[in-house]
């Protein structure tokens, strides 16, 4: 993982700011919000943080196998490419709101894209 993107963006503080914006977008998008219904908000915020830290290339302990396991239940509930695209769309607009430069944005979305098959358990 490229930790320089994470540092360039401002590390953990930036992740906190991004979680706030990103998670709100996800919860208010009715095409995907049902996947998050049953999870406690504290736990979920922590997981969103893990999500973004990972997308920013920051320190994380997740492997492809973990990504598969974390989302396997969701796939059996119908998680597919359209949901994945929606999440990536919210990630993109979050980064734009935070004024993240274009070049970093491309790198980050590339990291997200790279786990598509693991998340969708293919």
């Amino acid at each position: 993982m490229d930790t320089s993107v994470y540092d360039e963006i401002g590390g953990a503080v930036a992740v906190d700011a991004a979680v706030d914006i990103f998670y709100r977008k996800v919860l208010t998008d009715s095409s995907i919000s049902h996947f998050f219904d049953s999870v406690d908000m504290d736990d979920q915020a922590a997981k969103q943080k893990a999500f973004l830290t990972m997308a920013f290339g920051g320190p994380n302990e997740y492997t492809g196998k973990d990504m598969r396991a974390a989302h396997a239940g969701l796939v059996s509930r119908g998680l597919n490419d359209s949901h994945f695209d929606a999440v990536c769309g919210h990630l993109k607009s979050t980064l734009e709101e935070l004024g993240v430069p274009e070049s970093l944005l491309t790198t980050i979305l590339g990291v997200a894209e790279s786990v598509r098959d693991d998340v969708l358990n293919r």
Partner: peptide, 16 residues
């Protein structure tokens, strides 16, 4: 507490 927390957040209060 749990329900109001989600609502307050969706209404724009930041998690912190």
């Amino acid at each position: 507490v749990h329900a109001a927390r989600t609502q307050a957040y969706l209404k724009g209060a930041s998690l912190a």
